[in-house]
Amino acid sequence: MCPLFYTFGFLLLVLIRHVETVTFVQSSSQIVNEGTKELEIHCSHDGSTYTVMLWYQHKQSSRSVSLIGYTVLHSEPQNEDQFKQRFLLKRENMTQGSLIIHTVNASDSAVYYCAANFSFSVKIDQPPFVFSQKGESTVTLQCKQDDNTYYYMYWYKQTSSDKMQLVTYSINKNMSSIEAPFTSSKYFMSRPEVEQFYLQPCISVNNYDPAYFGKGTKLTVLEKDRKPTPPVVKVLPPSKDECRNQKDNEKKKTLVCVAKDFYPDHVSVSWKIENGDDNIGEATDTAALRTGDSYTITSRLRVSAKTWFIPTNVFTCNVTFFDGEKYSHYTNSINGEEAPDTNDMTREKFLKLSQNGKLSYGIFIAKGCVYGAFVAFLVWKLQGSTGK
């Protein structure tokens, strides 16, 4: 099956064009041991007219979101082929359902999303792979869908940076348009029938039937004989050379927080400045980095140099860690520093010293002239006395 909401980019496209919203409640993060016989993730929402509930899996190592399956109220669950063995979909009523995973293994570690939709009747058929030789003049990509009431059809290109770019779209049979920066000299879209068209990654869109997603439930399956290990947190002070030779209103200082040696990667990082209200910006790694048997994550806090050079200001990094049962907080703090006395040559200092040097040199020349005139006067007097 290749249904309407197979590509996560479709969600982004539709939500920005629809005003209605649906509120979801999903199970919180789960950490279980490998071999757990049964794990259930619950989902509920407040969309009382949404007959379809869908489940998606997103692994950190993958750029795509995989459809697990869906349920239509009062109908049998429909699972994708790769999820038919151990994944069971349940539907209690219009607004409540759950995903059950049997005999959990390490490959099940992922974020699981619940979604809801009004209807679910369109199937898209597109070859998963197309191979071509370097130098070939043309490559044709095909796509079909089974509902001729879906007039708008789109082709997207996904780059290595995960960015989705609209290449072209069609509003009906034999009607298409190429989007910039793509050009008609390189890309051509053919749509001989309402249900059939050609080019690259296709999405069939009905603006009246958007899908709404929950925030997701992160599942981590612990490796064999491993137990959760909390992080070690350390805040590193700014580099002393970071804002040298810059104007006062441009000086910044960057503090770095390093949380390491934790397992698994259920962490979040936040900053707090005590006795100071300056917070220019925070930036935390999008995901923890696996190093050996543990994880490391870094976060950066940028503040003004003026805020940093106040010893009473306290900068605290807080790391929240989930061990499968409870959330714990691990912190580390450092104080600001005294502003250093620096002899660095700035432009202002150079100009001031130059002006002082010019003034001193002028005074020296003036004194030299006066002294020379005085000596000449004495010599003239002595010559006059000798002549008499």
Rank of each mutant, 00 (worst) to 15 (best):
F5D: 14
F10T: 09
F10W: 14
L13S: 08
L15E: 13
E20V: 11
S29G: 09
L39D: 03
E40Q: 13
E40W: 00
H42Q: 15
H42V: 07
C43W: 00
S44W: 02
D46N: 15
G47E: 03
V52Q: 03
Q57R: 13
R63K: 09
S64A: 14
S64R: 12
S66E: 15
G69H: 10
V72W: 04
L73Y: 11
S75Q: 15
S75P: 13
Q78T: 15
Q78I: 15
N79F: 06
Q82D: 14
K84M: 10
F87S: 04
L89N: 01
E92F: 08
N93M: 01
I100D: 06
H102D: 10
H102C: 13
T103S: 13
A106T: 08
S107F: 00
D108C: 07
S109F: 09
A110N: 08
Y113A: 02
F118W: 07
F120E: 13
S121Y: 08
I124S: 01
P127S: 05
F131I: 06
F131N: 15
F131V: 09
Q133A: 15
G135W: 04
V139P: 07
T140S: 15
Q142R: 12
C143P: 01
K144W: 06
D147A: 05
T149P: 00
Y150G: 10
Y151Q: 14
Y152D: 10
S160V: 08
K163L: 15
M164E: 08
Q165T: 11
T168H: 05
S170Q: 07
S170G: 15
N174M: 12
S176P: 05
S176V: 13
S177P: 08
T183M: 14
F197A: 11
L199C: 12
Q200K: 04
C202D: 06
Y208D: 15
D209W: 04
A211V: 14
A211M: 08
T217L: 05
T220C: 07
T220N: 06
P228Y: 00
T229P: 04
T229Y: 02
P231W: 03
V232N: 05
V233A: 03
V233Y: 00
K252F: 07
Y263P: 10
V269H: 03
K272I: 00
N275A: 03
D278M: 10
G281N: 04
G281Y: 00
G281Q: 02
E282G: 12
T286R: 00
T286Q: 02
T291I: 14
G292A: 07
D293K: 11
D293C: 04
D293V: 01
S294P: 00
T296M: 00
R300A: 14
S304W: 02
A305I: 01
N313M: 07
F322A: 12
D323Q: 05
Y327P: 08
S328W: 03
G336W: 03
P340S: 08
N343R: 09
D344T: 07
K352A: 11
L353M: 05
L353R: 08
G357Y: 05
S360I: 12
G362S: 06
F364V: 09
I365W: 10
C369K: 12
A373G: 12
A373Y: 06
F374L: 15
V379L: 10
W380M: 13
S385F: 13
K388Q: 10
